[in-house]
Nucleic acid binder design. Structure first.
Lengths: 200, 200
DNA sequence: CTTTTTACTTACTAACTAGTAAGTAAGTTG
DNA sequence: CAACTTACTTACTAGTTAGTAAGTAAAAAG
């Protein structure tokens, strides 16, 4: 590191720190509301250094979504998630959204990008579609298994219910941002009431 | 109109045309993805002329939300809506969202602004909160009345169910944008199935 | 010990951003 | 007919945007 001795904190991998920071800015402010300057200033480097790691904002945005997709696949296949009974798999999913709500009222990736979707670079659009499709397919399978074992209750097809639940969760995080955390808890409470209630 | 004779089409009120166009851009691209130049170019005027009508983008944005709030109140109080039985009031609401989905996959006002919410001017934030609050209160009352007359079915409090349904509808329009109209219809179909199904 | 690679900085461009000030043509009002 | 108002245009500022090209210090590789 030129012209500067290492401070107390670890400098970490700049490339990773850029990605983390950009992801945070994306989830807290939206894709068209942050710039290379924001990232550079926060990291104490120059905007050109950000271009060195991610040559364009399109690249950076695509990297964010691609990493989230990798994380989703990893999480889904984790033994401590994959081996759970369906009702607890659903609870694990709700816990992820809950942690977003508690962490600075971050919205989910989908909710952050949907409104600006048409202004996004094509590769980013493609990754986001895959992300949403895989998550929906996973939940549909969880819901189907849960209904088969009578631990989850719903009418209609698992695919439609999965799409509905995920859409509700994405929207609930947006409501939390506009108001506060309480409507989010209200909505998630309603979802639990409907899906997890004991047999009538 | 200097230097130009009126063309075949009506020039209309420029101020209203700016508001319409800005609203369209907002719902199709997001607040941080359109500029005075976009509006000016489309209307065949100069950006400064847009500033003449709406002195700042904050003003323009606030005017869009304020108008939507006025429209909501007007729609809600319309005899052909207010005098309907609850189940048909719900259908009328669904029809509004459906028309958004069919009209260039526009998202709703809430869905367009939630992600970028923190970057919005304070008056716009306030108007959007009011908009969402009034819509939720209206739906909660519709749901309560519908359950009382056994034409709508749901568990839990009307307030929680109203928040959940509106959140789902906002999210469903976003999914329509990212994929296509079919998941929107799937989700709305699921909502109808749950709320309007005949007594078991 | 020299060469190459890594991770930047400095300095720059071209385009776009919101916003302002001054001017002007046409229509309205007294 | 004169003064004023409306609805603009032209010309501008100051700041920000993504992105590039050239240079450089330090570390790694041969």
């Amino acid at each position: 590191m030129p012209l500067q001795s290492a401070p107390a904190a670890v400098p970490a991998d700049t490339r990773a720190r850029i990605l983390d920071l950009a992801e945070g800015l994306l989830l807290e402010r939206g894709f068209n509301a942050f710039s290379y300057q924001h990232i550079a200033r926060e990291l104490g480097i120059k905007p050109a250094a950000v271009h060195y790691h991610y040559s364009s904002k399109d690249d950076l945005g695509t990297a964010i979504v691609a990493r989230q997709l990798r994380r989703l696949r990893k999480w889904r296949d984790l033994p401590r998630v994959a081996d759970l009974p369906p009702a607890e798999q659903l609870e694990a999913l709700l816990a992820v959204y809950d942690s977003h709500a508690r962490h600075a009222c971050r919205v989910c990736l989908f909710g952050a990008l949907a409104a600006d979707f048409r202004t996004l670079p094509a590769p980013m659009q493609a990754e986001l579609r895959t992300f949403n499709r895989e998550l929906t397919e996973w939940l549909a399978q969880v819901l189907a298994a849960g209904r088969a074992t009578a631990s989850l209750r719903f009418v209609g097809s698992p695919a439609a219910k999965a799409a509905q639940v995920l859409t509700t969760l994405a929207g609930a995080l947006q409501v939390a941002r506009v108001h506060d955390e309480t409507p989010f808890q209200l909505i998630v409470g309603q979802l639990r009431l409907e899906l997890l209630s004991p047999n009538p």
